[in-house]
C-alpha cells in the first residue's frame, strides 16, 4: 500500500444554486473508499451547505443535507468551518447541523465532527495538505 496522504476538500459554494456542493459531497463519498486522511473545509458560502433545517420541497430538488450526517460512517470526521465566514454571514455554529462520528476505539462514543477554526488556523491546516480539491 502507498502511504496515507492528506486530502482536503474545500467547499466555497452554497448548495442548490450550482452543482458544486453536491458534486463535492459525491466525490468525498467515493474518495472515502481509498483510505486517505480526509478532511473537509467549509469557507465563504460553503458554510451554507451544512445549515440546519434545510427544506427543499418548494424548489423540487433533492435535499442532500442529511447525507453530511453519513460522513462519519465513511470515516470522514474532520469538518473545518471557518469562523470568519460564518460571522460575515451573520451565522454561528448553532445554525449548523450537529454532525458527529462514532469513535470505535472509544466505545462508539459520539464525537463532534465540526471544528470551528479561525482563518489563520485553517490556513495552517490547508498548508499542511498533500492534495487540496476545490469546489
Amino acid at each position: 500500500m502507498s502511504e496515507i496522504k492528506k486530502f482536503m476538500y474545500v467547499n466555497r459554494k452554497a448548495p442548490y444554486g450550482t452543482v458544486y456542493a453536491l458534486e463535492s459531497l459525491e466525490v468525498v463519498l467515493i474518495g472515502a473508499a481509498f483510505d486517505q486522511d480526509v478532511s473537509l473545509a467549509f469557507v465563504d458560502d460553503g458554510v451554507y451547505q451544512i445549515m440546519n433545517g434545510q427544506n427543499t420541497t418548494g424548489i423540487g430538488m433533492k435535499n442532500f443535507s442529511s447525507t453530511y450526517k453519513a460522513l462519519g460512517d465513511y470515516e470522514v470526521t474532520k469538518l473545518y468551518v471557518e469562523k470568519e465566514s460564518l460571522e460575515a454571514r451573520g451565522l454561528t455554529v448553532d445554525d449548523l447541523m450537529e454532525l458527529t462520528w462514532e469513535d470505535e476505539d472509544d466505545d462508539y462514543e459520539e464525537k463532534p465532527s465540526i471544528r470551528l477554526v479561525s482563518s489563520a488556523e485553517l490556513a495552517e491546516v490547508m498548508a499542511d495538505q498533500d492534495v487540496v480539491l476545490s469546489f
Binding site: R12, V43, D44, E82, S119, L122, A123, E124, M126, A127
Partner: peptide, 14 residues
Amino acid sequence: NSLESCLRLSAAGS
C-alpha cells in the same frame, strides 16, 4: 471574493 478568501486563508510562506 476568491482573491480575498485566498489572501485570508493562505499561510505564510505559500
